[in-house]
Design a protein around this nucleic acid. Structure first.
Lengths: 187, 187
DNA sequence: TTGCTAAACGGAGACACCCTCCGTATTGTG
DNA sequence: CACAATACGGAGGGTGTCTCCGTTTAGCAA
């Protein structure tokens, strides 16, 4: 049923691998499509047949690690400790994911609420995970009533974007996330 | 003593005016230098003699409104109300300033801590204003001890960037800023 | 194996962007 | 009024994303 030719499949995966490596090292803006093509040993035409835009390529490159976010959320929730500790742990994992590839945090956070974006499915994943965390903590009466997942995604995504952009260390990230956590937890 | 020719002064101001208008309407990325030159009725050469880079032009275009931030900080501090209300009012004014020009919030927040950036002086202004607000509230014992101006600039700047990027309304901005405010105020 | 067709390939080049260079035009001073 | 000194304009260099199309190759059928 798969009408793709074997060489096409091979090339597609190879290109995505190379792109993942390059984006991770240098960040979105610093990697050109020509560079990806040359490094992968293919022509730009081939590159563009597999990935119609640079954003689509980026989306494919960061696909794998995004899928693990659900596991991280579940793990944070199952952990021991106070609601604050668990919320903070989740936030930290979330930021770590978002900043894993330079430039990804801002691109994904920017796409929140934009259904047409190539990152829409990733946003959905994040939103859902956040929602589950909120629900779990709310069930214990630990959350304020008026916080919603989108708001939290934006807040934490904003922190992640700043952390990514300014190359802040984990400690600085944690102190900012603590502010957010204290702001959304019930008094 | 001013060695600038009259036509040069005229052109410089005219270009800055046009650029301010264009940037405000369309955002940084969506305005090209060719467009600014054409709209202003000058050649690109002239444009680049007055403003050596696009960022320098942007900096000049947003100069005026940044200078009023100090007044806004003072006003927010002098206002009546609880520490929370006053802090929130300042945050809202801050975000309003940052989002006045599309794209400015992220650019300025990104430049925090980068002394070499063309926006360094604007960052300084914001940092200082935030520091004054923190000091005033801390003197009343309303602030947590461990928050600093840079951290706050980043948090609020991150919110501003998200608000700007997603075209959120004032209400959405306020609810996010309330989270930050509650996170930094003493329990 | 061989022949054929649909699919995939590669890279020249279109277009847009930021910015530079230099011949031309203008200003204002002696 | 002449003549530096200064400012002007726009062609074009370098780099980026993306398209188009002639060429090559994979996979199947005889």
């Amino acid at each position: 049923m798969n009408s793709l030719r074997a060489d096409a499949v091979r090339n597609r995966e190879h290109i995505a691998d190379i792109a993942r490596q390059l984006f991770r090292e240098k960040g979105y803006d610093a990697v050109s499509m020509d560079e990806v093509a040359k490094t992968a040993g293919v022509g730009v035409g081939t590159l563009y047949r597999h990935f119609p835009t640079k954003e689509a390529l980026y989306d494919a490159a960061i696909q794998a690690w995004v899928e693990t976010v659900n596991a991280a959320a579940a793990k944070s929730l199952a952990g021991e400790g106070s609601p604050r500790d668990r919320l903070l742990a989740w936030f930290q994992a979330y930021v770590e994911f978002l900043t894993r590839h330079k430039g990804a945090a801002w691109r994904i956070t920017s796409a929140l609420g934009d259904e047409g974006s190539p990152f829409a499915t990733k946003c959905r994943t994040y939103l859902d995970a956040n929602q589950r965390v909120i629900d779990a903590l709310a069930a214990e009466g630990a959350m304020r009533r008026d916080v919603d997942a989108m708001q939290l995604c934006r807040l934490v995504g904003g922190v992640a974007a700043v952390v990514d952009n300014s190359d802040l260390d984990a400690e600085a990230a944690k102190s900012m996330l603590a502010v957010v956590a204290d702001g959304v937890l019930a008094d």
